[in-house]
């Protein structure tokens, strides 16, 4: 165990370099550069809130914020997991030639998505200020759902990364699964429109519970409900344990399949 921790400390600079590389190359050659990290979600959110405050109005108070918060959580999950899925494959040339703990690649992708999430979160706050929505002090507690989601996404990302090395189909299949997941979480619709069985299914989705907590603390100014937090914590830990196990068991064979 201490060996793993020592190894992690040794390669921590690499993790930092990988994350900065991710962020830097994404907006390379654009005039505004890294500023796009913030500008991109902000513009998206402005468009979305204009569209959704005039169109498709479910009977939800402050619908634009409802949908923006939903998008924010979902986008982080989908970006983080699908990018860490391809992390090992994308870095094949490196893995074949130098020894590096391989989970670092998957994890670095989660971290760079996390930075995008933080930028989106700032954009959300900016939108909230400009739409005269109330800002509650409970917004600080948003760290809880974000942390839970990061752990959950890391677990899922590790599973996907390990599977995708052996079966490249996973990349395409997961794209479809993400769409399913999008509709199985109350991102654009309220929970109240769902009939019995589907309602239960959506409730069992960890993303739903994390999103609930996020909305409670950011939009509604409530304390997070214990049930949602405990459920998503359990799911996140399960995902992480399975992810680490699957990844660890398969990592020595990666190089043979790359």
């Amino acid at each position: 165990m201490t060996q793993y921790i020592q190894n992690f400390i040794k390669f921590r600079p690499l993790l930092k370099e990988l994350v900065t590389r991710d962020i830097k190359t994404k907006y390379r050659r654009s005039v505004l550069g890294v500023l796009w990290t913030l500008l991109n979600p902000l513009l998206m959110m402005i468009v979305l809130s204009i569209v959704f405050s005039n169109l498709f109005r479910f009977r939800i108070e402050n619908y634009p914020l409802y949908i923006l918060s939903g998008q924010l959580i979902y986008n982080f999950f989908s970006e983080g997991t699908s990018r860490s899925m391809s992390a090992v494959i994308d870095n094949a040339s490196l893995i074949k030639k130098v020894y590096i703990p391989k989970y670092l690649f998957a994890f670095s992708r989660i971290l760079s998505s996390f930075i995008n999430l933080m930028a989106s979160f700032c954009a959300l706050i900016i939108v909230m200020i400009f739409t005269d929505a109330r800002l509650y002090y409970t917004v600080i507690l948003a760290i809880i759902p974000i942390f839970l989601l990061t752990v959950f996404a890391t677990g899922i990302g590790l599973i996907l990364a390990a599977v995708a090395v052996k079966f490249r189909d996973m990349i395409h299949l997961y794209g479809v699964l993400l769409v399913v997941l999008n509709y199985l979480a109350p991102i654009i619709y309220p929970m109240s429109i769902l009939p019995g069985k589907i309602n239960l299914l959506v409730r069992l989705n960890p993303i739903t519970q994390i999103l609930n907590v996020f909305r409670e603390v950011v939009i509604y100014g409530q304390l997070p409900s214990a049930g949602s937090v405990i459920y998503s914590l359990v799911m996140a830990v399960i995902a992480l344990v399975i992810g680490l196990y699957v990844f660890y068991k398969n990592q020595d064979n990666f190089i043979l399949n790359l």
Binding site: K10, F11, L14, L18, R21, K24, T25, R28
Partner: peptide, 25 residues
């Protein structure tokens, strides 16, 4: 040059490659 990223400058690659070998910034 296993760890080179061709989109980054030589200077940035020095730090990236160093990190791959386990050196801090």
């Amino acid at each position: 040059g296993a760890g080179f990223d061709i989109d980054l400058t030589a200077k940035e690659n020095v730090y990236l490659n160093g990190a791959i070998l386990g050196f801090s910034h």
